[in-house]
Design a protein around this nucleic acid. Structure first.
Lengths: 233, 233
DNA sequence: CGCCTTCTTGACAACCATCAAGATGCGTGG
DNA sequence: CCACGCATCTTGATGGTTGTCAAGAAGGCG
């Protein structure tokens, strides 16, 4: 159970519980459970029975999908305020992907039954869920088109821009992606191989567009990235 | 306005208005407008301001997305009972894709304002929308993974299976995709070119897996398609 | 300080898009 | 009813993009 005023304030700021009247937020808080998972730990596995719904408080999660043959792609990275486990909302019986932690992460969680009851009682929650899923659906459609029609370099540029938008932090040097991301991780997000990502980022680094230390990427020249995306050469 | 008992029965059977109490269905029907669009006509264009929400009664729609450079992919084909224009539900200001009719199509429509009001008043509608968007989101994620990791032939097999599931009709010869689909259309759905689709289907036709006349594809050996999908050669 | 993971870079080849040209078939108009 | 024309489909040849294989370099953690 979660009840402190700070917790309620956090809840009120999340994508799924925004714009709720106070008593509804109270109810949401009363039925929430706090949980913490360590870096690299798995929140749930693809194929597991859908039993819980989550909201990230602090940290970063990574959602992936694996094919029967082992090939993997990254579906999304989830930061503070974002929800995980939408299957719990939509009566999908098994999680369609695996979610694990990129950094130590704090979460709120609700059982499938509870979150559905909350949605039924407060249409605003369901409408927020519609908005979130709509936006994510749209983003995935766009990725699908990019993957179908664009060259790798442009796809990598798009992926990087999206990352910056979702998890970018302004610094003196430019925009930094604020969680660690290996070449392999990036490749799984862009739909290519770590080799191609490495080559492309190396070339961009030569041109002063980006730089990366450890596993943190910094964008120095967003304008040149835009140019790469639009380039019709 | 739509009020006949048959219309209400149709509405009660759609993915977005199922499981509603009678008076809610009544309300939905009262605020609905009937509309009809001819084959090849456009329901709305990508980028248009989101003004209406639709449900297909009979016919078939096709949702596509076009890149700035003109490259196009098919997002989805929509048949009876399915909804179009989810942007109207999720406050996305402009339609993210274009929807046009593959066959003469009858629709119900609601203004953006009306459908949102209905959702707010009846949480069940919003929950149904969550379920529909969740399922579509999941499907798109799977397509994304296939496009990232699988060979064209297997992707074409997956695409054909999905089509059969969504719009297949059992016949004496096998399962027929029950709307006309050109090689180009198929290619835009599978993320490849019409040439590759043509070659692949020709090869499969030689093996007795499928056949196609005019623009109707029939699957004779679903089992062999499954084998192609799983083949780990 | 050493090992192991991750990254970089090169060489090569395969898959599939592109280009090209002919075949088929449907709709339309005479 | 037939013939013409246009759209679609088929099939071949070729080349480019990018994945695969390989091996060495760099960097972090125990």
């Amino acid at each position: 159970m979660v009840g402190g005023q700070t917790d309620l304030n956090i809840l009120a700021g999340t994508e799924i519980f925004r714009s709720l009247p106070t008593e509804a937020i109270d109810e949401v808080g009363r039925s929430a459970v706090r949980r913490r998972i360590a870096r690299k730990a798995v929140l749930y596995h693809q194929g597991d029975a859908t039993d819980n719904f989550y909201v990230v408080i602090v940290g970063r999660l990574r959602a992936t999908q694996t094919a029967p043959d082992g090939a993997q792609i990254a579906l999304r990275y989830l930061g503070p305020g974002e929800m995980a486990g939408y299957a719990a909302l939509s009566e999908i019986p098994a999680y369609p992907g695996t979610v694990s932690a990129v950094e130590d992460t704090h979460l709120f969680s609700w059982s499938t039954h509870t979150i559905r009851q909350l949605m039924g009682r407060h249409a605003q929650i369901a409408m927020n869920a519609v908005a979130v899923l709509g936006t994510r659906y749209q983003e995935t459609q766009t990725r699908l088109r990019e993957l179908s029609t664009e060259t790798v370099e442009r796809r990598i540029a798009h992926t990087l821009t999206r990352l910056a938008q979702q998890a970018g932090r302004r610094t003196a040097q430019g925009i930094e992606i604020c969680f660690p991301l290996s070449r392999q991780d990036f490749a799984e997000l862009a739909g290519t191989t770590l080799h191609t990502v490495s080559r492309t980022l190396s070339a961009w680094e030569k041109d002063g567009i980006v730089s990366s230390t450890h596993r943190y990427i910094v964008i120095h020249r967003p304008d040149l990235l835009e140019q790469i995306k639009e380039d019709v050469t």
